[in-house]
């Protein structure tokens, strides 16, 4: 089970759709008003055989409980710089820190699609922790896109 904590943005949308496609349980923990796009949620529910695979909640602890992957992204995406202050306030409590990790599955891995703002959505300690896959995750972009290009142009 993958838990995404933060803004219901484009990355969250794509993770939701991939989860539905592959039959992977995805939970999104976001403050009220920052839920993922409703058309994306509808699409996911439509193709997913199991309606319980997707959960959207503002209860971080509940969402993290038992998760195998904790995933986050910046709170303010590109073009939202003017909302920075408001979002920092609204997302209070939606940070991945060592306390939160203890509530997840014992060997839960940490993912972040970068760029990361330390001490906002994630702490430096968590980024540098042994279960962090963040830099391998970034490397994988290259291998997977090399494959995607091959499959589109083969």
């Amino acid at each position: 089970m993958l838990t995404f904590i933060g803004d219901g943005n484009n990355v969250a949308n794509s993770l939701i759709l991939c989860g539905a496609l592959l039959g992977v349980e995805v939970r999104i923990a976001c403050p009220k008003g920052y839920e993922p796009n409703s058309s994306v949620i509808n699409k996911a529910n439509k193709i997913s055989k199991n309606k319980n695979l997707l959960k959207i909640t503002d209860n971080v602890c509940e969402a993290v409980s038992g998760a195998n992957v904790l995933y986050t992204d910046v709170w303010s995406s590109m073009g939202e710089e003017n909302q920075l202050e408001k979002k920092d306030k609204d997302f209070y409590g939606f940070s991945i820190d060592s306390n939160l990790i203890r509530k997840a599955s014992k060997d839960a891995i940490i993912m972040h699609c970068l760029p990361a703002y330390r001490s906002k959505e994630i702490t430096d300690e968590v980024i540098e922790s042994k279960n962090s896959r963040i830099f391998e995750q970034a490397e994988n972009r290259m291998h997977v896109q090399q494959s995607l290009l091959s499959c589109l142009l083969a």
Binding site: N10, V11, N13, C113, L149
Partner: peptide, 20 residues
């Protein structure tokens, strides 16, 4: 072929790699 390298709605290249 056109590849989505991120829009306001989706970032499919990111999510694809994230399942690797």
């Amino acid at each position: 072929p056109v590849i989505n390298a991120l829009t306001d709605l989706e970032h499919p290249c990111q999510a694809l790699a994230d399942f690797f």
